[in-house]
């Protein structure tokens, strides 16, 4: 608590490169780190760089570009980049420690969704599949660009949506390494709440499903399936590629929100108007048990 009206949020996140271009990597890593503040409904205020870099193997210009990419996203978030720290490392790593603040009367938590709430997702799924295809040089033109656009875009709903819509959010998390299934199950860890997914409504990056059929599935997604499928019902109703998508580990994925159903239509429209073109209502929360149904 900063005072009776504001709570402080202090988070840290860093990742290894997912793309070749250093500026883009910086942007993605920064968007990913800033997301932790946004996912709590907050506004990032100050960030510090965290850098690991192989000084002897890579030209310093690469590091400069990574940091420029990070600066670009911190600026876009309206925060101040106040310095940071670097160490020599075998492979590049980059991220941010971020401080932000949120009004105490509307802190978003992972749990707190209520039966009847709408489940809203703000970015398309499939970054793990598309990145794997890119690494295999089996992606089609434009597919990686769409994934990069999505990963670079900020989850800055809390600074873009009107206050009355922000207050209609009962729970929120961001979709990252555990995939949609893992992060949604996390939202169900309060007793007595379950979720139903509408597979047809789930936004998907171009080409992602085709990549699953080609066996371009990252190892993390298999781990997610093993961990989370025992708590899901109805997977047999959807294609194997769609199943892979539910478990696909995301980098800088979207926000996953439980929103009061009375305003969910307005909420999704406001998200789209704020630049989250793929935002949609992909399911609903139900009375328990803590399982995902399809």
């Amino acid at each position: 608590m900063v005072d009776e009206k504001r709570a402080g949020i202090f988070t840290l996140d860093f990742i290894t490169p997912v793309v070749d271009d250093p500026f883009t990597f910086g942007q993605i890593a920064a968007a990913n780190a800033l997301s932790d503040v946004f996912a709590m409904g907050g506004r990032p205020l100050v960030a510090l760089n965290i850098v690991g870099f192989p000084v002897n193997c890579e030209p310093l210009e690469v590091l400069t570009q990574i940091l420029k990419g990070g600066q670009d996203r911190v600026n876009a978030a309206g925060a101040l980049l106040a310095g940071g720290h670097s160490v020599e490392d075998g492979e590049p790593k980059y991220g941010l420690a971020v401080y932000g603040e949120v009004p105490v009367d509307r802190i978003w938590k992972v749990t707190g969704a209520r039966p009847g709430d709408s489940l809203v997702l703000t970015k398309p799924l499939g970054t793990g599949l598309v990145i794997t295809a890119f690494q295999a040089e089996m992606d089609e033109p434009g597919e990686m660009d769409a994934a990069v656009d999505s990963m670079c875009s900020l989850n800055d709903l809390p600074v873009k949506l009107p206050e009355e819509l922000l207050k209609a959010v009962h729970a929120c998390t961001d979709v990252t390494g555990f995939g949609l299934a893992g992060h949604l199950l996390d939202m169900l860890s309060d007793a007595g709440i379950g979720a139903t997914l509408f597979p047809d409504q789930i936004p998907i990056l171009p080409g992602a499903l085709a990549k699953a059929d080609l066996g371009l599935i990252p190892a993390g997604s298999y781990r997610n399936r093993e961990l989370y499928s025992p708590r899901m019902e109805g997977l047999e109703k959807i294609s194997s590629a769609m199943t892979d998508l539910l478990f696909d580990a995301q980098t800088s994925g979207g926000l996953l929100l439980g929103v009061a159903s009375e305003v969910s239509g307005e909420f999704v429209e406001a998200c789209r108007n704020a630049g989250f073109a793929f935002a949609g209502e992909i399911g609903s929360f139900t009375e328990g048990p803590a399982r995902i149904r399809l």
Binding site: D213, L214, G215, I217, A219, Y222
Partner: peptide, 15 residues
């Protein structure tokens, strides 16, 4: 030598 690779190569083959 990994389950991931076994599954992925199998998926590619069937596809």
């Amino acid at each position: 030598d990994t389950v991931t690779s076994r599954e992925n190569v199998s998926r590619l083959g069937r596809n």
